[in-house]
Design a protein around this nucleic acid. Structure first.
Lengths: 385, 385
DNA sequence: ACGTCTCCAGTAAGCGCTTACGGCACCTCG
DNA sequence: CGAGGTGCCGTAAGCGCTTACTGGAGACGT
């Protein structure tokens, strides 16, 4: 038996062992649900554990087993918070990210993993350091859109498994995203063909967001292919926030510009702002201007008018990201097993030479803001019939 | 110099040391910003680090320094997600929690801490195990409302520092919450005195939520003190969700009950559901029935009518919770220092015998849904003037 | 009765860091 | 010119676990 005594502080496995009259190895075995310890031993250990209120130290466990069972999730915090105006009303812009995180968390939990979440400020000068600190605390990283340059991503991916969310096709690491192209094309068709609008516009999200780029391109191309006109340019550059939607519309109206018949927004939040600003000027949606969003956040159906948008399988995107990361993490471990030449079906054996790009299906949700008639049935509210 | 070689896998401090031609102690010293290594040495080390893409292992660091720089945050997940109906539309109920977490995270970051977030399902049978696993991975725990019984909290608090959010006064551990009593009293006064409503009701949140209890009691008491009538009872029992608000109103109307002139809801989400259900039946808010919420979530001001509610300093609550926890964590360390008898001003020296209850101020926000006239100025949108 | 096999349980060697301690230059001053 | 600093840096002892290896005790076959 080991002599180590840890009486004052929090109990360790040695205290448990001593109290149960067994060796630390046995304690470890019951902790990990091995089946060798016989029932009598196991019970003594369990008793000691609960009497002492013993909680195994995750760090020690991680160090020894080379697995932390933690995945890091990094996303972008929008407004500076370093000083006086401590908490801006930034919350709305985070709905999407939070939902994704929920999806990650739920599947992670099933595998015994927990989430280390961390938001970063882009203009942070110590970004590399922060990311390293985080990386050191987990087995793998999931990076939301807009947190790191492709080069930065590639660099850190050298050392720890990384998957990105909503990244560009052909990025340096595995990537998971919704299918923006197909549904934005469908949106364009719906607006132009079904509703007959000819003069439309796309309010962009962050210029360097791959999702935004794809959405804008697909929409514009399809509108033009269908003989419509699609306004673009700096005047239509937003940043995914509701505020940017408000500003753009106000700006246009102040300039006396003729608004297009329909405005497709890069996401729901921008649409929220647009509708808001339009109402401010007495313009009717969809009567005067039709407005659409993207994401189908929960609030989309509570707006008046209810928002026509594209549903992304938000939580599934998070879930998929975790699964991909998890397979990278576990594939990392058995490095000295089969020497080589394992020609079985597409296993993930350190083969992120050509990182995969997972695209999840999206769906056009027609509600009122595009000009469709309101659903006659009272809409269900959740699981309530 | 140490002989250990770690060539195949991810680089360790030994690899860095070897490459830089120094000892691991020196590497550690530059990693931790100690000032002894002289510039030349430091540069060699830094160079080796970046060449190898070395990321110090958080587990090893934590084990050695007895500090993980991680705090756990546990909150309640509402709907089961174990099976087929994988992702219910649970999101709305999480806004509040997510905001709090943001507050925690932002201040935590300043101190070099990260957040380990984990949602739990109440009906989970392995709850104690899950919480233990989480506890083992961090230096302290912040528990949201409704995740653990007071007994359970007390038990785990034996081993790791814990602070609760929106817990009851006089709970087993330190607690941080918004001041529900004062503002609900004010709300009652506003409704009864300013608007002259005499027949009101309070739609409750979870029955075992301390915040809900305080809100209900304060509101009811004040209404009655002012000579009004306040409906209560099982018919008015909700669960903080929008869905419960919908159901309650639908139920009442189906029964042919005469609705009260004003309904105060336990939180904004319930109010959202109530307004929705009222509209469904052609009832005008606030014309026929006034409705109020609690929390002042961002969507509250985008509702039609804009929601009268109580603003909780949500992120500040999270921030405060972290600060309290952090002081407990750091106070934990020097355990063999001053033997006793430190009679200085209220320091947190392992003195959670009578856990503190921090109450942050709240504020009544009068908007339209109570019957107040709409604000004439176009409301600002964020920082936009 | 003795070898052998099976089960349990203990011993001890790390996992990758931090840090107390000590040694070696080199410098300062009596 | 030697005692005593002072500044850098290396050595080694852990931190609290997991687990390969080893050993002892029965159970069993011959």
């Amino acid at each position: 038996m080991d002599a180590r005594a840890t009486s004052g502080a929090t109990p360790t496995i040695y205290d448990v062992a001593r109290r149960a009259g067994v060796s630390i190895a046995s304690v470890s075995r019951v902790l990990n649900g091995r089946d060798n310890p016989r029932p009598a031993t196991r019970d003594r250990v369990l008793k000691a554990i609960s009497e002492l209120g013993f909680v195994p130290d995750g760090a020690a466990r991680a160090l020894s087993s080379r697995l932390k069972q933690v995945v890091g999730v990094v996303f972008r915090r929008v407004y500076g918070t370093d000083d006086g105006g401590m908490f801006e009303d930034e919350s709305e812009s985070l709905l999407f990210g939070d939902q994704i995180n929920r999806g990650i968390e739920i599947v992670a939990q099933r595998r015994g993993y927990d989430l280390l979440v961390s938001s970063v400020n882009i203009d942070e000068h110590t970004l590399p350091n922060r990311i390293m600190t985080i990386a050191g605390k987990c087995d793998g990283l999931i990076l939301h859109d807009q947190v790191l340059s492709p080069a930065g991503i590639a660099s850190i991916a050298r050392t720890v498994p990384v998957v990105t969310l909503a990244g560009a096709e052909g990025g340096p690491v595995a990537n998971v995203r919704g299918d923006s192209a197909t549904s934005m094309r469908e949106m364009a068709r719906h607006l132009v063909q079904d509703h007959g609008y000819r003069r439309l516009a796309y309010i962009a999200g962050h210029a360097d967001s791959p999702d935004n780029i794809v959405r804008g391109r697909s929409f514009t191309a399809e509108v033009q292919a269908l003989g419509g006109e699609c306004l673009t340019g700096p005047a239509w550059q937003g940043d995914y926030s509701a505020g940017s939607g408000v500003q753009i519309v106000r700006g246009l109206i102040a300039l006396g510009a003729t608004l297009p018949r329909a405005i497709a927004c890069a996401n729901d939040q921008t649409a929220l702002g647009v509708i808001y600003a339009l109402a401010e000027h007495g313009l009717d949606v969809p009567g005067d201007v039709a407005v659409t969003g993207f994401d189908d956040l929960p609030f989309a159906r509570h707006l008046r008018p209810q928002l026509t948008t594209v549903r992304q399988p938000i939580q599934e995107i998070g879930a998929k990201a975790f699964e991909v990361l998890h397979s990278m993490i576990t594939a990392d471990a058995p490095v000295s097993d089969a020497p080589s030449s394992s020609a079985e079906g597409g296993s993930t054996r350190r083969d992120w030479s050509t990182p995969q790009d997972f695209v999840l299906p999206t769906r056009l949700i027609r509600r009122e803001s595009c000009g469709c008639p309101p659903d006659s049935r009272p809409p269900v509210w959740r699981q309530i019939s």
